[in-house]
């Protein structure tokens, strides 16, 4: 087996092991941290489709993360207040339905944002995605129906058929299972016809056009898939915190997702998982040392960008072998 294949199984495996070990040792807080890592990893896997495979540097992925979060917040809010949305839709506390709504809503948002942003490239693309993200952020702040700046609190975690989601381990396992399924999908995506064409657009647009494939459509589809997955992560994140607020839509959130992808390895399947685990671990360890733990995170990020371009996964697995 290739090193990368081992890592693709091993890194998520390690996350699962940490969660289970924490359960065995009755360390509830660690389970919560592992859950957070799984969810942020999922958001990163989403971003990595646009960023890694497509070379699309989106600084607006918090928009999709937040839309997923608000999809959960709004549906659960209407369920807990027994006030139907627009007088007809009753809200729900069922996770699968919430996920579906989150995926569709964030996917549609990605379709609109992508359709406009992808007409530009380079630094303009970065700026436009950032601008869309900020637009949604300020919209959420000034939208009084769902708490405005204060956000929405949900009293009970939403339900999953057959599982008590209030048990931390159960919710961790749900999040991990979603991550695993999406990882398998993303892995297959990279090796699919679409994956090949998308990766070609990252390397040479003229070549893709010359073989008769439309780069814009390929990128748009990548952007929609990417946004939808990040939106799904957002719904889980809101469920973990039982709270959604405009901070999920902030550009710092976009940055955080991007940082963990870079940390773990851009375009590497398990990169975001490794990145999220290290990110959460650093946050946990360094926050004790200093309130300004981001300084250390910044230094580490600098080292990774300067000396390990493939991120942590690249450091261990070496250059990606492409002939597969």
């Amino acid at each position: 087996m290739r090193r990368e294949t081992i890592l693709n199984v091993g890194i998520p495996g390690l996350l699962l092991a940490i969660g289970l070990l924490a359960y065995a040792l009755d360390e509830t807080y660690i389970i919560t941290l592992a859950t957070r890592a799984a969810i942020l990893a999922l958001a990163g896997v989403g971003l990595n489709i646009a960023l890694g495979l497509g070379g699309l540097v989106s600084l607006g992925h918090a928009a999709f993360f937040g839309i997923g979060g608000y999809a959960m917040g709004i549906l659960a809010f209407h369920a807990q207040t027994y006030m139907p949305l627009w007088g007809v839709i009753g809200g729900t506390t069922s996770m699968p339905i919430i996920w579906l709504v989150a995926v569709i809503a964030s996917g549609l948002a990605a379709l609109v944002i992508g359709a406009l942003s992808l007409r530009t490239s380079g630094v303009y693309f970065i700026m436009i995605t950032l601008a869309f993200g900020q637009m949604l952020f300020y919209f959420a702040i000034s939208w009084p129906a769902y708490g405005g700046e204060d956000g929405v609190s949900i009293y009970m975690r939403n339900n999953f058929p057959g599982l008590n989601t209030l048990v931390p381990l159960n919710f961790f396992l749900i999040c991990f299972a979603v991550l695993a399924v999406v990882l398998i999908f993303a892995g297959r995506l990279g090796k699919s016809p679409f994956g090949l064409a998308l990766q070609a657009t990252r390397q040479n647009v003229a070549r893709v056009e010359a073989v008769g494939l439309a780069p814009y459509k390929l990128r748009l589809m990548a952007f929609v898939l990417s946004g939808a997955i990040t939106g799904l992560a957002g719904a889980l994140f809101a469920d973990l915190n039982r709270f959604v607020s405009p901070s999920m839509l902030s550009w710092q959130m976009s940055g955080e997702i991007m940082v963990l992808v870079i940390l773990g390895g851009i375009a590497r399947l398990s990169g975001p998982v490794a990145g999220a685990m290290v990110f959460i671990a650093l946050e946990y360890v360094l926050e004790d040392l200093s309130h300004y733990w981001h300084i250390y995170l910044g230094a580490i990020l600098l080292l990774v960008v300067l000396f390990a371009r493939g991120g942590l996964v690249g450091l261990i697995a070496g250059r990606e072998v492409a002939h597969d």
């Binding site: 699919s192 016809p193 679409f194 994956g195 090949l196 070609a200 893709v208 073989v211 008769g212 492409a322």
Partner: peptide, 27 residues
């Protein structure tokens, strides 16, 4: 970044079309 074969397969994919399939291994 592609191998020689991947570049040629990209051409063949362009010729065939249906490049939006997300499942199935292209190589």
């Amino acid at each position: 970044e592609f191998t020689v074969l991947q570049n040629a397969v990209l051409g063949a994919l362009g010729q065939r079309g249906r490049a939006f399939r997300v499942l199935g291994k292209v190589m």
